Amino acid sequence: MNEDNHRACRTTGRTFPFSRPDCQPLRSCSQRCPDPGEDENEAIILRFSCTPASVPASRRHTRELMSSWQIIPPVTDTVVLVVSELVTNAVKHSGGRLLPYRDDQPRYFDLGMYLRTKHVRVEVHDDEDRLPVHVEAHEYAEGGRGMDIIRFCARRWGARGLCTGGKVVWCDVSLADSSHGASAP
């Protein structure tokens, strides 16, 4: 693995194969609060460079993580799909270009996945301050359906700005494969 492209951070539970014991929290100001009555069983945060190559890498890591958590294949496929959509948006809209640099500095986004009692939470943190907006995609348009996919696949979803700049977009995918269609909080 190329350490310049991503790093992993074990936050709870057992160590995921890509974890590093010396990893510190990536953003102390953006600590999530678990939903009332929800226990966080396992968690991992992965850091990727803002490049198109990070999209398939994030899907691969997600599939491996879901396997290590023994998540059933239909739920795994849904989590991989929402990760792909959220990561693609982070890469595409992070600064409005596909270059991994801003002001000659490498640019990164963080992908967090959290196993809860009833769902898997997926969070993507990036440096772009603009929150996602729904766009009406033309029938033959190649893009513009990402948030519709998230709404269909997730139990809940949302986005918020961070005090350190940037934003986090998150969604919860139910561990019961029958729950589709989400609402923003």
Rank of each mutant, 00 (worst) to 15 (best):
M66F: 03
F109C: 06
P34G: 00
T11Y: 12
I72E: 15
P17K: 10
S58H: 07
E42K: 09
V124C: 10
Y108D: 05
D77F: 03
Y101T: 14
R20N: 13
R59M: 06
R32I: 05
L65D: 07
V122M: 12
A43R: 15
P34I: 05
G13F: 01
T88K: 11
K118T: 07
T76C: 04
R121F: 03
C29N: 11
H119T: 13
T12C: 08
S94W: 13
I71L: 02
F109V: 09
H61W: 05
I45R: 14
V120I: 15
Y114S: 04
E40F: 10
V87L: 07
R97H: 14
I45C: 12
V82M: 07
D126R: 13
P56E: 07
T15G: 06
C33R: 15
F16K: 08
I45A: 14
L65S: 05
M66G: 00
P74L: 01
Q24P: 03
A53H: 09
L115Q: 14
I44Q: 08
K92E: 10
T12P: 00
R32G: 04
Y108V: 00
T78L: 03
L99I: 09
R116C: 14
E3P: 14
Q105V: 06
G95T: 12
N89P: 08
S84A: 14
F48D: 01
E123L: 15
N89F: 02
T78C: 05
V82T: 11
D127F: 11
V82F: 06
V75S: 06
E85R: 10
H119Q: 14
R27V: 07
S58C: 06
V79G: 07
L115G: 01
G37C: 05
D77Q: 14
V91F: 02
Y101F: 15
R32E: 13
R60P: 00
E85I: 04
S54Y: 10
T62W: 09
V80Y: 03
S68H: 10
L86M: 15
E85S: 02
D127W: 01
V124F: 10
P34W: 08
R27S: 00
Q24K: 15
S28M: 12
T88M: 12
P36R: 09
V120S: 04
R63K: 15
E40D: 05
G96D: 08
